[in-house]
Amino acid sequence: MNEKMKALRAAFPYTVPICAGFAFLGLAYGIYMHSKGFSFVYPMLMSMTIFAGSMEFVTVNLLTSVFAPFHALLLAVMVNARHLFYGISMLETYKGVGAKKFYLIFGMCDESFSINCTTQPPAGVDRGWFMFFVTLLNHIYWVVGSTLGGILGGLIPFNTAGIDFVMTALFVVIFLDQWFSQKNHIPAVLGIVVSVACLIGFGSDHFIVAAMAFILLLLTLFRKKIEPAEEGAAS
C-alpha cells in the first residue's frame, strides 16, 4: 500500500465525527443561504474559499446589507482571530511537510486544527500526508454539506434539532484526551476559566478576543511556573 493511501486510511476515522457535524452544519448553512434568496453556487464557493463556518454565517449578513468591503475584511480578521493561536501552535508541527504546508494552513479550521495538533498518526504513517487528508476530508464534508443544503432548501426529512452539539462533544473529548496525556493542567484550566470569565464579563459576541488577550497575558506572566512543569511532561 502506498504512503498516501495509508495516510488516508489512518486519517478517515478521526474525521467521522466531523463528517457528521459538518454534514449538519453545512446543510444548515446552505439552507440558510437558500432562505435568503442565494443560489447554491454561493454557499458552495464560499465554503471552498473561506472554509470557516462561523464567518460564513456572518458573511450572509454582510451580503444582505450595504456594500462595505473594508468592514468585511476587518470583521473577518476579528471573528477568525483565534486562528492566530492555531498558527503559533502549529509552527513546529507543519515544518518540513513540503508544498502541502500551504494547503494545511489554508484549510486550518477549528476542527482540522484540533485533530492535527493533538493526534499522532499510527506508526509507519507519514504525518504530513495524515494531516493533509484530515484537512482535505473536512474541507470536502463542509463543501458537500453546504452545497446540498443550498440545493435542497427546506426538505430535511427528520428532526435535526440539537445535532450541532456534535461539535461541543468533539471538543470536550479532545480536551479530555489532552488532559489524560499531560501532567501539567495549568494551560487547560486557564483556557476554560478565562473563557468563562470573559463570557460573563464581555457577553457572547465579544468574549473571544478578550479571552485570547487574557490567556496570552496569563501564559506570559506565569511562564516561569508553567514551563518547567511542561519540560517534565510527555508531549
Binding site: R82, I192, V196, I215
Partner: peptide, 12 residues
C-alpha cells in the same frame, strides 16, 4: 502551551 488553553476556549 497554547493548544491546551485553546481547546478549553473552544469548548466554551
Amino acid at each position: 502551551v497554547l493548544p491546551f488553553s485553546v481547546i478549553g476556549m473552544l469548548v466554551i
